[in-house]
Design a protein around this nucleic acid. Structure first.
Length: 312
RNA sequence: GCAAGGGUGGCGGAGUGGUCAAACGCACCUGACUGUAAAUCAGGCCUCGUGAGAGUACGGGGGUUCGAGUCCCUCCCCUUGCA
């Protein structure tokens, strides 16, 4: 049963028709493509990485230059991640007392400078605010699929707690700018709806955790919905041992999320997966996979049109 | 013409009497890659064989030696110095 949603996500930088896929641009660059090239692919919006920008350039610097859009010379919607997943991957590379997650935040050792650093829910949102992105994500604690129930429970609890702090920080930053916020604001509208003007504030999404455990996913979703966000995101690394996305979990989760909010599957980028999840009702996707694969010489072709002469 | 140094796999470049099918790069091939600290990682890369393994290689020819990419002679070619 397909529930493919063609809707419109409103952002400050313009509207996005769903379902949509956002490629990831580490420093605002998609694997060496110019924005002109990017546009020719039909891509209308991008994701960029908070932590890389913060560590390499500094959000203060980007802010001084007028924000990401001016800095990149890109006027379409830009989504920033919290930096949580990058810290997560760093921590899993090298576990130590310096690389750890506590209730305060995620501490890690900067692999370039070797200095200890701490990313908190508040600092992540402040950085994203300075960067001036259109869609933002709260800091969360991502997990894989095979953690113990205790670890999963802890991740969900912490993710909810961080989401609360993030929302508070978000509202504080909006207030400083004199931007109004209402729980009734809706950034997801029907196509053809009379009101297609651009949105008046950046969007904020929270990330549902719970690993491969349905009950925990449900709890996580409910707790986040209680706080209230513009988007609810499929978090963690929901890839099974066979290397495939857990489609059952994907479908279970999408049906727990409010239909009048954006449902965003983070890090899902296998073309077949994107199509499958879009039909489940997921609105938005981002992933490194297509661009990374392309950089590694991998070409996607429609089913049945592969050519042995081209390898993959 | 004289002098000196060289000619090794697709390329660069190790190797100076046995453990060399040839280090190490590059290129190439295959596999991996899922909120980008992955422009990475794993394997292959003379021929035949799934494999153990076998065969043929170090400019050409000849020689010394149990054994030569490595030593000697000769021929061909390249680079540099002197005329």
């Amino acid at each position: 049963m397909s529930v493919l949603r063609n809707k419109i996500i409103k952002t400050i930088a313009g509207n996005i028709i769903t379902p949509t896929f956002l490629p990831d641009a580490t420093y605002g660059s998609i694997g060496g493509l110019s924005f002109v090239d990017l546009e020719s692919t039909g891509i209308k919006e991008i994701v960029t990485t908070t932590l890389h920008l913060e560590k390499k350039l500094g959000s203060d610097y980007v802010q001084k230059l007028g924000g990401l859009h001016k800095f990149f010379s890109y006027d379409r919607p830009i989504l920033t991640d919290s930096g949580g997943f990058q810290v997560f991957s760093l921590i899993h590379r090298r576990k130590s007392k310096l690389n750890e997650i506590t209730d305060e935040g995620a501490s890690f050792v900067d692999p370039i400078t070797g200095q200890k650093d701490l990313l908190t829910p508040e600092s992540s949102l402040t950085i994203q605010h300075k960067l001036g992105s259109d869609i933002r994500v709260v800091l969360d604690e991502p997990l894989g699929m095979n953690d113990t129930p205790e670890v999963v429970e802890s991740s969900v609890r912490r993710t909810t707690a961080w989401a609360k702090r993030s929302k508070a920080q978000y509202l504080k930053l909006l207030e400083q700018e004199g931007i109004t916020y209402s729980n009734k604001d809706t950034a997801l509208i029907e196509i053809g709806s009379a009101d297609e003007s651009s949105f008046h504030r950046p969007l904020l999404g929270a990330v549902v955790q719970g690993g491969g455990n349905h009950e925990m996913r449900k709890r996580s979703a409910e707790e986040l919905i209680e706080i209230g966000f513009d988007s609810y995101n499929f978090g963690g690394f929901p890839i099974k041992e066979d290397g495939r996305l857990d489609l059952e979990l994907s479908e279970y989760l999408v049906n727990l999320l409010p239909t009048d909010k954006i449902r965003y599957a983070m890090g899902i980028g296998n073309p077949d997966d994107v199509i499958a999840l879009a039909h489940m009702g997921w609105d938005m996707f981002d992933c490194v996979l297509p661009t990374r694969n392309a950089r590694h010489g991998y070409l996607y072709v429609p089913k049945g049109e592969g050519d042995k002469d081209f390898g993959n």
